[in-house]
Amino acid sequence: MTAAPDLVAAHVAELDRALRGPAAAKRSMLTEVRHGLADAVADHRERGLDERRAAAAAVHDFGPVHAVAPLMQEELTARQGRRTALLLAVVFPAELLAWDVLWWTGHGWSQPPTTQVMALARAVDALSVLVAATALVLLLATFRRAPLPGRVTGATGLLAVLGVAGCGGLSVVMNLLSSHPAGPAGPVPPAVGVVGAATLVVVVLVTRSAVRALRSARAARGSDQGAHPKVG
């Protein structure tokens, strides 16, 4: 007597493959769907249908994946954009503050910085503030019922990529300009090592979140096109 569970499980598995988004949110949605289908099967069984017909009726009532997935993907996409935007709004100001504290306390520079290095440092600060401010705007936008949430999430993912590339690139150039190959390299202060390690972790987290946001946005666009095919 495995026909009903197999039919329901196959439908949930197909829905699982069609969705992209935060793992926990997606898992919660699929669990709710699975429980709802199980309850529907039980209701049809009480009305006199055999197990296989009850399962088929429950799946039919739930709807085909191509019709249901776009609605669920919309919510998952909004949640992924929200997570990425919140991450950007928190970590960029935090990293900016951490590095500025090092400079203010004299731990960041082994010697007085040049004019070019100071200009690049200010550019990194300005870009970090711009990324954080834009992320806040996008974070608020994820709570609105927009017809195409993939655009907001896609913009958030792109913002994350540009933030990492921009701040990272400027920081590399800044450190190259402040280095002196002719002289011996001194030991790295512990505080600089800690903040530097934290920065690498942030880069990994933001990059991973950016990739997930872009994938979720692409899935949302694909679902929307599948739900509303063009006629020509």
Rank of each mutant, 00 (worst) to 15 (best):
T207W: 14
A217F: 03
L87M: 07
G81H: 09
G232L: 05
S223F: 05
G36D: 00
A9G: 09
L97A: 15
A13P: 01
W103I: 13
S28K: 10
A123I: 04
L200P: 03
A141C: 03
V188R: 13
L148M: 05
G150Q: 13
P181T: 09
P184V: 08
V137P: 04
V201G: 14
A13K: 05
G222Q: 02
K26D: 00
E74W: 08
A38K: 04
V137D: 04
A94P: 10
A132R: 04
H60P: 05
G222R: 05
K26P: 05
T114D: 01
L102A: 10
G48A: 03
R17E: 12
A227H: 11
V211F: 05
V8H: 02
E32R: 12
S216R: 09
F143R: 15
T84C: 11
P22R: 04
A123L: 12
P64C: 04
G222P: 00
D50N: 09
A126S: 08
E14C: 11
L96F: 15
P187H: 10
V201N: 10
A40G: 04
R221T: 14
A121Q: 13
V206T: 11
V101F: 12
T115A: 14
V90Q: 09
V192A: 14
D61I: 15
L138V: 04
H11D: 02
S216F: 09
V124Y: 13
R122M: 08
S178Y: 07
D39M: 13
